[in-house]
């Protein structure tokens, strides 16, 4: 338990710092790399929570596909590699809004889940295994699963149709 806790805090601090850099960085490529750091961190947190299948999927899909897509987007739009100002003039109101939201959420989360503990044990590992996930996915959530398949096809064809040069 202690080892997982130490791992959590190290990863959490890295994630938080990287997340802040994503929204403040003055360089597009750096922002993308910081985003990848957050995504890998989240994947590690899922492994700590013994959700192995989700953790691995997060890693492959986000780090493998989404992050590469972002970098690809940055390359093809020939974004400048040198720092540039990407912020609008609402920085201070934005900061106020998000800090207020954070304060409210943290206060209410502590109120709602103050002393609750997650017990990491073997039965939790069984829940996150791919056979359990697959069973639930194809028994209970088969309609959304099929809907997602159509959604991916639509997204693919839509993206090609709109990005194609003609």
């Amino acid at each position: 338990m202690i080892a997982q806790n130490i791992a959590f805090w190290i990863i959490a601090v890295v994630m938080a710092a990287a997340a802040v850099r994503v929204v403040t960085s003055r360089n597009l490529v750096h922002a993308a790399l910081f985003l990848i750091t957050v995504l890998i961190g989240a994947s590690a947190q899922f492994i700590i929570l013994l959700a192995e299948f989700v953790g691995v999927t997060q890693f492959f899909l986000y780090v493998g596909a989404v992050a590469v897509l972002f970098l690809f987007g940055i390359i093809v739009t020939r974004a400048p590699m040198q720092p540039a100002d990407y912020d609008n003039d609402q920085r201070w109101p934005a900061l106020a809004v998000s800090l207020l939201l954070l304060g409210v959420l943290v206060a209410l989360l502590i109120d709602a889940f103050g002393h609750q503990e997650i017990e990491l044990s073997d039965d939790l590992l069984a829940i996150g295994r791919s056979d359990a996930v697959g069973n639930s996915l194809f028994r209970t959530f088969v309609v959304p699963f099929e809907v997602v398949s159509m959604l991916l096809l639509a997204a693919l064809i839509g993206a090609v149709a709109i990005a194609r040069r003609d």
């Binding site: 997340a19 994503v22 912020d87 609008n88 609402q90 109101p93 809004v97 959420l105």
Partner: peptide, 15 residues
């Protein structure tokens, strides 16, 4: 919650 609020800041402050 921290990540969410950071994201909210980014959406509001980035152009």
């Amino acid at each position: 919650a921290f990540l969410f609020c950071t994201g909210v800041y980014g959406v509001l402050a980035r152009r």
